[in-house]
Design a binder for these strands. Sequence first.
DNA 1: GCGGAAATTGACGGGCCGTCACTTTTGTGG
DNA 2: CCACAAAAGTGACGGCCCGTCAATTTCCGC
Lengths: 196, 196
Amino acid sequence: MGKRERAKAANREAILKAARRVFAQLGYEAATVRDIIRGTALASGTFYNYFRSKEEVFEALADDGARRFRPILRAARERAKDFEQYLESALLAYFRFVLEENRHEGRPVDERQPHLRTDTPEMTAIYEEVRLGIEDAIERGLAPRLDSDYLAHACIGLAQEVGAAMLRRSPPDPVSAARFAAGLVLKGLPGASRKE
Amino acid sequence: MGKRERAKAANREAILKAARRVFAQLGYEAATVRDIIRGTALASGTFYNYFRSKEEVFEALADDGARRFRPILRAARERAKDFEQYLESALLAYFRFVLEENRHEGRPVDERQPHLRTDTPEMTAIYEEVRLGIEDAIERGLAPRLDSDYLAHACIGLAQEVGAAMLRRSPPDPVSAARFAAGLVLKGLPGASRKE
DNA sequence: GCGGAAATTGACGGGCCGTCACTTTTGTGG
DNA sequence: CCACAAAAGTGACGGCCCGTCAATTTCCGC
């Protein structure tokens, strides 16, 4: 690989790395493009060779996260024998993922990001993956015939909020969060009850 | 009421009104304090007699929404005979509320707001109201003993996402959305199935 | 090496931010 | 009715960030 190409990849990576740090420290809203490039050895103009805006940097970071998470989700879908197992492992994987992604220091989680939008490309991909898992299950007769669009959104919203609630506990426990969420979706309130 | 006091209330209202329009037209991120005051007859400095920032204006708008919605929620709780009824009417009220709040023209809903944060005062109040409803039901033996914190967050996340999905349909149907959501929470997948 | 494409640089015009000295408006007591 | 102080409004200002771009440096192919 030529020097040119290597430098380009390194610069891009440097910007993303600095952005992660800056978002965590200042919060997404307060952060500026200047803050980010000051966290690198690059000049201000160079930033714009790589990204058009702070928003685009955030999207790249989110894309990155989604790109790492989607295969996990897909694997869960392919590995699962039934819908119950799929849901449980998918939710557990998600809660472990968010826990891992937030092991860093800095501002409260809620301020690091513009709250998760559902309409960015990478979120759409996750949504599609979830809906696919649901339709799969319906076709195979493992789940009742229902509105897979609503259900996918319901699962995502539920997972996001329960995940955030989990992060606020100490220690956060992905296993019990997943048990709760999966139980709720599968059997409703009775399924979400505390097993004591 | 003196002229002074009246003008103050009117100015504040003018700013909020302009902000609503500007957020809807330009999207929250793109909107600036200047855009907002340009939408009023006031001078730029005057803005800062009323709010410290764009964020604070948004919070005032959100507060406003929460203040109008919370009583509805509370009424649903007090009126309901059992938990099932409470959930259904609360969800239906919420979906009707978001539908009503988004009857205006402008940018896609997702861009009007920094995605709803769970940690602002007014959202905390809503959360508390929801959790209270749940604990109420548990105490009265209408719902099984479960993690009311997780359940409250789960319901809120679920409602938010299903609500957003509903808005994207034409025509949006709060009744079927509420039936879906309530069925899901109460009985899990079987409860969310399409009744055809 | 050498010539040109590609990438980097930082200064620049433009806009928004929040402040503040100044003006205008309002309420009050004589 | 007026004078006067307090309250509110005004818009110009210094400071910062934005995105651009002409000049410069770095790299690659010949």
